[in-house]
Structure formats: structure tokens, C-alpha cells
Design a protein around this nucleic acid. Structure first.
Length: 388
DNA sequence: GATCCACGGGAATACACGGATG
DNA sequence: CATCCGTGTATTCCCGTGGATC
């Protein structure tokens, strides 16, 4: 916990249950994910060559939703980046005075880098200090810069590429092409949910590393750690945590999301401790399978705006996609055309952020469908509003 | 002037149904 | 009875335009 957080918590009055939303957020990854030691070890084994200044081969990290893949990989790459910076090993300007002596590290989230251009840009941005333009320069141009940097005697870079099988991300074929176009001095570590056999990427990897789902005991630790960081003292009873952990069945995302919903409910009702009912209602209302809130919160701004309006709609306005689009487009703050909102809704359903269910037909023509959320609305609402 | 990308708009296609047709 | 057709919606698909930035 950093100093600012400590001060903020000290200042909070004792009557509030939720002290720190960020600490409860299923989207936030902590610096040192508890209980993932073995996964760290296996990743370090894979990356071992970098400690001799050499490049490891390409790899693929896989595991179920909520197993902690992103948590482990982001934490590990953050540490490695820091270490190599501290060691002065990396000097990354285009006019560098000394050549670095060991590989650089970059973490790229395909949810945020949604095009070939954006991926190239993200890699460059991570390994250089120079600002990289966002416009006015072609993708080929950026690729050329990467070749300039990593084509020759430079020790190269290891790039973690997260969420390779995200429905909104570049497709597998595009990724294969993209990786093939990278200079030989770049080694990649793809991260996805699917087993190795499910992606053509593994045709180009030397190793696959599986991250197992959280064991019950570990998930319990995660819940207790997060609630002690984010809730009032004694806010979460051990038995209730166990109940959440049992229900979540190894999925840390869902466990934390449910905890968040339960805490939100308790707080709204003025309590300073979670009750069994809070947890029951939260679990009851969790869509399963759910879509990652991190995914929802990295959607393009206007799509999030549409979703933000959607979660506040009365059910009366949600009888059909058309009606929903009308209601959303009419809201202040959403200045998209009705047609665009409607298209967004279809697209969001297509990629699994929303669900389309048959609605009772109302008169003539093709029967309409209705959209339902695949994520807990309370969590999205809070986190979205928190970000202003 | 170049580049990327989000929007808007609308054409094309799919679907459901009832009635007409063979 | 099986099929086709017309009508009214729903859904998908595609592409030109323009803003923002370099």
C-alpha cells in the first residue's frame, strides 16, 4: 500500500464500508499476485536466457479466465522492466550513447492496441523514450523503426502480447503475419485462454506455459487480502469469503466482481460489514459466464458511453434492440446517431459483451431481440464513474 | 499532404408470418 | 400438403467522409 493510500484511508471516517474501490476492483492487478509463485517460476524459467543477455524463444502462456494470467505477466514484466532500468542496462533513445547489454521488455495488451498500427506503436513506445506519433505515420513506417532498432546487434526485446484470443482483438492470422514481420531481435510471449492446440501461434513457439486456476485456498487469500485493503476492518467475514471462493470456482475475476457487488450493496444500505444476504444477492446477480470487466473498460470510449447509458435504462426501454437504441441515443451525454448506437449494440452482442435473447414478438415482422449484460452492472457503473 | 480510425448511412440479406398457389 | 411470395422487421455488411495529428 502506498503512502497516499494510507493517508486517504486514515482520513476516511469509520462509518464507511468501502475504503478503496481500486483495491477491490477485479480490473486492478496487484504488484505481487499472491499464490501465483509456481507460475512466476515457470515464466522465469522460460525467460532465463535474458539473464545472460540473450533472447528467449517465442512462447505461449495459457489458462482459464480468471486464473491470473494477466496479473502474473503484467507484474513480472513490470519488475523486469524496472530491474533492467535500474541496472542501467537499457538506454532507449534513438540517439542512444551506449548500447544496452540485455534485452528490453514490453507488455502489450491487445485490448488497448486494437490494430496492427497500434501494436507496433505500443511496442515502440515501451522500448524507447522518444514519443511515438499516433497519426500521420504509416504502419510500415513504424515497422521500419523496429527493424532499425532490433535488426542488428541490439540485444533485442521480449514482448508480452496479452489477450491474443480476445474477440475484439486482431485475429490469429493477422497476429501470425504481424509477428512474422517483426525483426529477429524481437521475441514474443503470447497470452491467451485457449489451449496451445487452439491457436496457430503455437506453430511458432518453443514452449507453452499453463497457468492453473486458483486453488480454493489461494482464492480465499486473494479475497481476504483485497478486502483488508479495500474495506473497513472486519468488513468481510471469513465464512462469507469462503462462500465467494467456493462459488467462483477458481476464477479470481468473478470472485472479486461478486465481492465488489456485495460490498456495493452493503454500503448502499448503510452497513459497515457484509451480510450473508449481500453475498447471496451478489452471486445471484452475477452473469455466468461473464465477460471480463477489464475488457468492458477498455472498449472504445463511445461504446463504453453507450453501455453506461444502457445500465441505467428502465427495463421498459429494453424490450428490443431498436427501443434500447432509441432510449440510449436520446440520453444526454450520448451524442451518437440512433443508427450508430444500434450498430454498437449489435457489435457488442456479437463479441460477447452483451447477450441477445429472443424477445416476445410484438406484432408483425421478424421478432425483435433484447440485450442483456454479460457483466455485473454495479461494478461497471462504479468503475466507469470513478474514471470520470 | 499523409495517416489512422471512428461514425454515419444505407444497401443487402435474413427471418417470421400469413396467404396464395400448384 | 409443400412451396412460393409479399410485407414488415431485424440484422449484417460495407464504404465514404471527416476529425485529429504529425
Amino acid at each position: 500500500m502506498d503512502i497516499e493510500t494510507r493517508i486517504r484511508r486514515r482520513r476516511d471516517d469509520g462509518s464507511r464500508l468501502i475504503r478503496d474501490y481500486e483495491a477491490l476492483s477485479p480490473v486492478a492487478h496487484v504488484d505481487d499476485p499472491s499464490g501465483r509463485g509456481p507460475a512466476f517460476e515457470r515464466l522465469l524459467d522460460h525467460l532465463d536466457p535474458v539473464f545472460d543477455g540473450r533472447l528467449p524463444p517465442n512462447g505461449y502462456v495459457h489458462g482459464d479466465f480468471g486464473a491470473g494470467k494477466s496479473a502474473v505477466v503484467t507484474a513480472l514484466f513490470a519488475h523486469l522492466t524496472r530491474l533492467s532500468a535500474d541496472a542501467g542496462a537499457v538506454i532507449h533513445t534513438s540517439t542512444r550513447v551506449a548500447a544496452p547489454s540485455s534485452p528490453a521488455f514490453a507488455y502489450v495488451d491487445l485490448r488497448e492496441a486494437a490494430s496492427e498500427f497500434a501494436v507496433h506503436r505500443a511496442v515502440l513506445d515501451a522500448v524507447t523514450e522518444d514519443p511515438i506519433p499516433e497519426h500521420g505515420v504509416s504502419t510500415a513506417d513504424l515497422r521500419a523503426r523496429l527493424h532499425d532498432r532490433f535488426g542488428g546487434s541490439d540485444p533485442g526485446a521480449v514482448v508480452a502480447v496479452d489477450h491474443v484470443d480476445d474477440p475484439d482483438a486482431l485475429g490469429a492470422d493477422a497476429l501470425v503475419d504481424l509477428f512474422a514481420g517483426l525483426p529477429s531481435g524481437v521475441s514474443w510471449l503470447a497470452v491467451g485462454r485457449g489451449p496451445p492446440a487452439s491457436t496457430p501461434l503455437t506453430d511458432y513457439t518453443a514452449r507453452s506455459i499453463r497457468i492453473d486456476p486458483y486453488r480454493r485456498r489461494m482464492l480465499l487469500d486473494v479475497l481476504m487480502a483485497r478486502s483488508s485493503a479495500g474495506l473497513a476492518r472486519q468488513g468481510l467475514d471469513h465464512d462469507l469469503a469462503r462462500r465467494l471462493a467456493d462459488w467462483a470456482d477458481g476464477n479470481a475475476h468473478d470472485a472479486l466482481a461478486a465481492l465488489f457487488v456485495a460490498a456495493d450493496r452493503a454500503e448502499r444500505e448503510g452497513r459497515t460489514r457484509l451480510t450473508e444476504a449481500d453475498v447471496d444477492v451478489a452471486i445471484e446477480g452475477m452473469p455466468r459466464p461473464s465477460v471480463s470487466l477489464a475488457r468492458v473498460l477498455t472498449l472504445p470510449a463511445n461504446k463504453q458511453r453507450v453501455l453506461r447509458a444502457l445500465v441505467d435504462l428502465d427495463s421498459a426501454d429494453r424490450d428490443s434492440v431498436t427501443a434500447t437504441a432509441d432510449a440510449i441515443a436520446a440520453r444526454p451525454g450520448v451524442d451518437l446517431s440512433r443508427g450508430t448506437v444500434e450498430r454498437f449494440l449489435y457489435e457488442l452482442a456479437e463479441t460477447g459483451v452483451l447477450d441477445r435473447v429472443k424477445a416476445p414478438r410484438s406484432g408483425k415482422g421478424r421478432p425483435p431481440s433484447r440485450v442483456e449484460l454479460r457483466f455485473p452492472s454495479a461494478v461497471f457503473r462504479r468503475l466507469y464513474d470513478l474514471r470520470g
